[in-house]
C-alpha cells in the first residue's frame, strides 16, 4: 500500500514505446483474466437461478409427483387443471390473501416509517440511540419475531389482550379468527420491518439540501407546506426504491405464516409460498406446484415492471 503514495505517472509512458502488437496481446490477456473473475459468479447464478426457472417450466408439462422418480410429459394438463378448477383449488384465494398482506404491510412500513423518520429527525446522541433501538428488530429472524408475537398475542395469557382489557377492549381473537389472523401477521412483520424504512427515509431527508428549506422559510411557508411541497416530492425516489424492493420481498413471505398460523384458520392466511411448499412437500404435486410457481413469477415480473414505469414517470430525480 505505501508504494501507492510515491507512484509514478500512468502506465505505458514509463515503458517507453513498446511494440504495438505485444502490448495488444498483453491487454488481451488482461481482459481475459478480468472476464475469468466473473465466471464463478455467472456459473453459480445460472445454476441457482436461471436453470431452475427453465426446469420449472419443464416440470409444468409433466405429471411428476415426487413419490416416483419417473414421469411422463402430459402437455397442458396441469395448466388446464389450474384454469378449470379455479373456483375450488384455492389458488385465487391464496393470491388474494398474499396481495392483501403485501399492500397492508407496505402501507404500514412505508407510511409509518416516513412519519417516524420525521419524528426522529434530530441529530443528537439520545435520538441516535432511540433510532438504533427501533432498527434492532430488523436483525432478528422473522421466525423468532413470530414466536415472540405468538406469546404476546396469546389469547389466554397474552399481554396484548390484558392491556386491551385494561382500556375496556377485547379480548381479541388474534390468531383463531380468520378475519383477524392476517392482520396479526401483518402487524408482526411490520414491527420488524418499519425501522428499516425509517432509516432509509431519514438518510434521504439528510441528503436534501438545506437551501430549499431556507428559501421556503424566507417566503413564509408553513411547516406543513414545506413538508408537502419540498420534503415529500424529494423523497419520491426513495419511496420508489422501497416500493419496488419490498413489494417482492413481501409477496414471498413464508416464515411468519409457517410459525404463526400454518396457513389457518380455515386457509385464511395461506399465502402463495406457503401453498407452494405444502403442495410440494405435503401433497408431492410437483407438477401442479410448478404451474402455480410460474404464474407467481410472471405476476411478480409484471407488477415490478409496472411499478418501475409508473415511478419513473412520477419520480423527481433532481435531488
Amino acid at each position: 500500500m505505501n508504494t501507492l503514495a510515491t507512484s509514478t505517472p500512468a502506465p505505458g509512458t514509463a515503458a517507453g514505446v513498446p511494440k504495438k502488437k505485444k502490448r495488444r496481446r498483453k491487454y488481451k490477456k488482461q481482459n481475459f483474466l478480468e472476464f475469468l473473475c466473473t465466471v464463478p459468479a455467472l456459473l453459480l447464478i445460472l445454476l441457482l437461478n436461471h436453470y431452475p426457472l427453465v426446469e420449472l417450466v419443464r416440470y409444468s408439462f409433466t405429471d411428476w409427483n415426487m413419490l416416483r422418480t419417473d414421469y411422463d410429459y402430459v402437455g397442458l394438463t396441469n395448466w388446464k387443471w389450474l384454469v378449470t378448477t379455479l373456483k375450488t383449488n384455492h389458488v385465487l384465494d391464496s393470491f388474494r390473501v398474499t396481495i392483501l398482506y403485501t399492500i397492508a404491510h407496505l402501507v404500514i412500513i412505508i407510511g409509518v416509517g416516513l412519519l417516524m423518520a420525521l419524528l426522529f429527525n434530530r441529530m443528537t446522541k439520545s435520538f441516535a440511540f432511540m433510532r438504533s433501538v427501533i432498527f434492532m428488530p430488523h436483525y432478528i429472524a422473522m421466525s423468532s419475531v413470530a414466536i415472540i408475537f405468538l406469546w404476546l398475542c396469546n389469547e389466554n395469557y397474552g399481554v396484548f389482550n390484558y392491556l386491551l382489557g385494561k382500556i375496556g377492549l377485547g379480548p381479541v381473537a388474534w390468531l383463531s379468527s380468520p378475519v383477524m389472523a392476517i392482520w396479526t401477521i401483518t402487524l408482526t412483520a411490520s414491527w420488524r420491518g418499519v425501522g428499516y424504512d425509517m432509516l432509509i427515509f431519514l438518510s434521504a431527508m439528510q441528503g436534501i439540501s438545506k437551501d430549499y428549506y431556507e428559501a421556503a422559510k424566507l417566503d413564509g411557508a408553513s411547516s406543513v407546506a414545506i413538508f408537502r411541497r419540498i420534503t415529500l416530492p424529494l423523497l419520491a425516489p426513495t419511496t420508489a426504491f422501497l416500493l419496488v424492493t419490498q413489494f417482492i420481498s413481501s409477496m414471498k413471505v413464508y416464515g411468519v405464516v409457517d410459525v404463526m398460523t400454518s396457513g389457518g384458520p380455515a386457509r385464511s392466511t395461506e399465502m402463495l409460498v406457503y401453498m407452494l411448499y405444502q403442495m410440494t412437500f405435503e401433497d408431492y404435486r410437483i407438477d401442479r406446484a410448478s404451474v402455480i410457481a410460474i404464474v407467481f413469477f410472471i405476476f411478480l415480473m409484471i407488477v415490478t415492471a409496472l411499478t418501475m414505469r409508473w415511478t419513473n414517470r412520477k419520480v423527481n430525480y433532481d435531488a
Binding site: N49, K252, A293
Partner: peptide, 21 residues
C-alpha cells in the same frame, strides 16, 4: 444483465427444481 436478472428470480419461486438438484 444476467446477474441483474437473477435478482428478479426469487428462490421462493424456483425452490422445487433447486430441491431436485
Amino acid at each position: 444483465l444476467i446477474v441483474l436478472s437473477a435478482m428478479m428470480i426469487p428462490s421462493q419461486v424456483t425452490f422445487i427444481p433447486l430441491y431436485v438438484l
